[in-house]
Design a protein around this nucleic acid. Sequence first.
DNA 1: TTGACATTCAATCATTCGCTTGAATATGAT
DNA 2: ATCATATTCAAGCGAATGATTGAATGTCAA
Lengths: 115, 115
Amino acid sequence: MAISLGMQVDRASAPKVDIFHAVADANRRKLLDLLAAGERPVQELVVHFDMSFQAVSQHLHILAEAGLVTRRKQGRYRIYRAQPAALRDIHDWAGQYRAFWENRLERLGGYLDET
Amino acid sequence: MAISLGMQVDRASAPKVDIFHAVADANRRKLLDLLAAGERPVQELVVHFDMSFQAVSQHLHILAEAGLVTRRKQGRYRIYRAQPAALRDIHDWAGQYRAFWENRLERLGGYLDET
DNA sequence: TTGACATTCAATCATTCGCTTGAATATGAT
DNA sequence: ATCATATTCAAGCGAATGATTGAATGTCAA
């Protein structure tokens, strides 16, 4: 596949922001949900928020630093794409406690109180 | 069942703290992990942190407000117990993106860009 | 009763957060 | 060239966060 003209990709490196923190904000979760439906320029995301354009941009920046989105420059647009593979960590972490809501177990693992 | 002497239970009501926020802090996640092995008094939790006793107490307070732990007074101890059923919400939310890390799909749902 | 222990309450403080506004940069259209 | 568009950069601000310290409360032990 040839390289598209005027196209440049910012690759994700080592995440600088903790994903738990990135996802703690409801607006950022909403952004991820919107992007899950398909990549979008910032413009199309902003309309879903009652917030300034720049504020949305800042949230996207944080998501990018957490490795949850990547962006691609296309003309004067920045097209953001969801990259939520990192959410697997969160999924797995929460999944450790599955027994608590499935079987109403009160304890996990093999530990016992020795008091 | 008769009421145990010197025992009192603080029941969880409607959570006042968002679980995503409660879990955003690494120390609080560590507390949950410790408590998953079995209920513990604050004292036994503190030793695992490089932090003042009171700071740990504050974190436990936040976890309690999020409904992720309950506490029981036993003598002069406060025994905390994990109640991480609410983590199911987080687990389910992150699970929405499962396709991203399982099949490397780049899009979820039925949405398409109509640009 | 006196004192040690376990925990919370309360005040304080530096840092971070989420947001706003205004300037800067870059691209496309005329 | 000029101007509008799309987005980021940067500075500032009030509010929330995470921690500390000291005082207060309650329980056990001598």
